[in-house]
Design a protein around this nucleic acid. Structure first.
Lengths: 331, 331
DNA sequence: AATATTAATGTAAGCGTTTACCTAAAAACT
DNA sequence: AGTTTTTAGGTAAACGCTTACATTAATATT
């Protein structure tokens, strides 16, 4: 069923039907009523493709992340989707995994579906081996990058200053007398690297000689954090605080510590990252660095709309993180 | 840039370009090479709308749920998105909240975007006041409903037998000597109702007189479960086990119990629902009823593809849940 | 009442594909 | 070499909409 069917039934021209559909031009109330009634009766839904062909905009934004089942991305996607919907846009979701060729494919899909823009969540950085797909996309549509960095024409990045947050966190722990602060992390992504940098800066600032020796790597799995802690305890390395790159690792660490009879926060303080809902689920609850996904996500959509409206928009924006104090490291 | 530009540059007709794009018809290797090279050089991406106009399929599936930031939906969406992508389909995400008018709007958006089908996750049931939007959708495209129930032409539902799972869980607790089994739930959704039913059946089966008195309602927030437990403890109601309708509530309950010096599982056993990652994060880890989102989600996509291929497909399918034993209720 | 202005509606071209149908060239038969 | 079959490639219509331009009807102005 199409606009012609409606036009015929309502005894008007297709132009009139189109005008009614688009709230444009002059249509008499009577005609409008009549046509709307016919549309309703026939259960007509306009074809967005055909529309997009004429208008060159489908009101659809590609949203890419590696994995929505990750609680962090899920939150970002959820906020973005809601903000977009409110402004009349849909979200075409692409979970690409971490494989670069899959990301390239995803970009091609989004481009072929003629999305009006792309929002990338995480895992983009300038020095990355291959960013040609982002360049390709940016040639035809704006690309907004959340917590990633990539400077190119038609590209806008919004990030959280995780480096400073990490440094501040080390300093805050130091103020409470902590010197031997371990760092357990899970990823060498763009933000992963910035976190480490900040941690090292902080440690150096409080006079630690070889901060690198306090760092251990781990995968996201909580059991991994557990075995890591077990090893560290066995090796009799001294420590009074632990920072982790994600809340899940903090949970794993706390569980392991508790099993060894080490009390959190009395014996060891723990700070997580992301300030996810998990922070409240743990006992003790986890003090966590909030990297403001909500603000980043909201801002991404706002930026996008500004770009659409040709307002002047900053190519890169940075937002400050905040330490949210809970039980695992009291203020 | 369009097919004409490519055709011109490559000195062939648009038909040839189209044939190459669609791997259809006969094109000589030489010509193919030449055209592909031009496409690559110009960074051409075919316009999926125009294509859809001709083909009447955009290879896009609408995926609806109330909220992707919910860990349960996030997992389902993630699996669905991956399965779809593997088969060459994209997922157009619609997070509708719980408001019926927003759901109707979302359906209209999906229909106007001419998705090839819709997968609904949760919150649909036959007796619901208004399901006209689902009927409307099903009139033009197949609608797959995960963990919801709605019988109509072109509608397929895949659910988990949560009722039986709940009953079995009560019986399992009873076998271990539990009689006073509380049930804390968060939602009167379709699956919420089935869970309660199963709980009551189980309680009756083990000879409880007024099972309803053991039931309390709560929102999803863990603090709510906590205050609820506090109240129950104050009121000196006897209980030795708690079942919750979601893992988060189990976490809240365990935290509250622990604060009161009540040990889990020594004094009170706790069983959660969904078998989410949270179950492992808690200490003690939570025994949880796995309602098999992964299987449901995978199956939804498989069903969809079968429908597309005109294979005969069951209108309704039910999958069995499973109790995953962890520390909070040992086997 | 005649004219100018504005409102309402219609016609037709264009958006970028696919594909049925057609023609020309090449290959495979006699 | 002449005919048939196959392969390669082209032309033009169709998909469902938007919109510039054209036309007619209604209203306002003189």
């Amino acid at each position: 069923m199409n606009i012609y069917d409606i036009a015929e039934k309502a005894e008007v021209s297709i132009a009139t039907v189109s005008r009614i559909l688009n709230h444009k031009g002059n249509v008499s109330p009577k005609t409008r009523e009549k046509v709307l009634k016919v549309m309703d009766e026939m259960g007509y839904t306009p074809n967005a493709f055909a529309r997009a062909l004429g208008l060159d905009s489908i009101k659809m934004i590609g949203v890419m992340c590696s994995d929505v089942s990750d609680i962090y991305y899920a939150k970002a996607v959820s906020i973005i989707e809601n903000e977009l919907r409110e402004k009349g846009y849909d979200a075409l979701l692409c979970c690409t995994g971490t494989n670069i060729s899959d990301k390239k494919k995803a970009i091609d899909v989004l481009l072929s579906k003629r999305v009006d823009a792309i929002i990338l969540i995480g895992s983009v950085f300038q020095e990355s081996t291959d960013n040609s797909h982002i360049k390709k996309a940016a040639k035809s549509i704006p690309v907004i990058i959340i917590n990633g960095e990539f400077k190119f024409e038609n590209t806008y990045s919004i990030m959280c200053d995780e480096q400073k947050a990490m440094r501040d966190c080390v300093l805050a722990l130091s103020e409470k007398g902590h010197k031997d602060i371990l760092y357990i992390y899970d990823s060498d992504s763009f933000s992963g690297k910035r976190k480490i940098k900040g941690y090292i800066e902080g440690m150096e600032q409080i006079g630690t000689d070889n901060p690198e020796t306090y760092i251990s790597k781990c995968n996201k799995d909580i059991s991994c954090a557990g075995t890591l802690i077990n090893d560290i305890i066995k090796s009799e390395i001294k420590f009074s605080a632990i920072i982790t790159s994600v809340d899940t690792l903090a949970i794993g660490a706390i569980k392991a510590l508790t099993k060894h009879g080490i009390k959190v926060p009395e014996d060891v303080s723990v700070v997580g990252f992301n300030n996810s809902i998990l922070a409240d689920f743990s006992s003790p609850t986890i003090t966590s660095i909030d990297n403001k996904v909500d603000i980043l996500s909201t801002d991404a959509v706002r930026t996008l709309l500004d770009v659409f409206e040709n307002k002047s928009v900053a190519k890169a924006k940075t937002i400050q993180a905040e330490i949210i104090y809970r039980e695992s490291f009291a203020k």
